[in-house]
């Protein structure tokens, strides 16, 4: 299968950059996600993941999202639930959320995502 890459120009406040690597299993969503048409944006990501987990290969999912609006958060939760389901089958799943030090709002958000999805997310404070 192919990689999925969505490149967003720097300074965009509305769409995150996405790189999902089918070879290494390293996936990243980075930036700010303020989307009214979030379904349109996140559906290809979700479909890619559904394909990827058929391979039973390990996955490392790195979130570098500092703002997730309401309609985007629904899709972040869908992704996390899918990763949890994959992990429950015995697959290797590592989810990490990179947070700017002091950004307690995002830290609380990640904690909430963890509680709701049941997936362990490692929080890393970036320098």
């Amino acid at each position: 299968m192919e990689n999925l890459e969505i490149i967003i120009k720097a300074g965009s406040h509305f769409k995150p950059s996405v790189l999902l690597n089918a070879e290494t299993g390293v996936c990243e969503i980075a930036g700010e996600s303020y989307l009214e048409e979030a379904t349109q944006f996140y559906n290809p990501i979700y479909e890619w993941l559904q394909e990827y987990i058929k391979t039973n290969k390990p996955i490392i999912f790195n979130f570098r999202l500092s703002y997730v609006n309401t309609s985007s958060s629904k899709h972040v939760l869908y992704i996390l639930r899918l990763l949890k389901k994959y992990k429950d089958t015995g697959a290797s799943v590592e989810a990490t959320w990179y947070i700017e030090p002091g950004d307690t709002d995002t830290e609380e958000d990640v904690e909430d995502y963890m509680i709701i999805s049941g997936l362990k997310i490692t929080v890393v404070r970036t320098e």
Partner: peptide, 14 residues
């Protein structure tokens, strides 16, 4: 001012 406050501003604004 610091980037955390800026981020708070941005979130509040949105």
């Amino acid at each position: 001012t610091n980037s955390i406050l800026r981020r708070k501003f941005f979130k509040m604004f949105l």
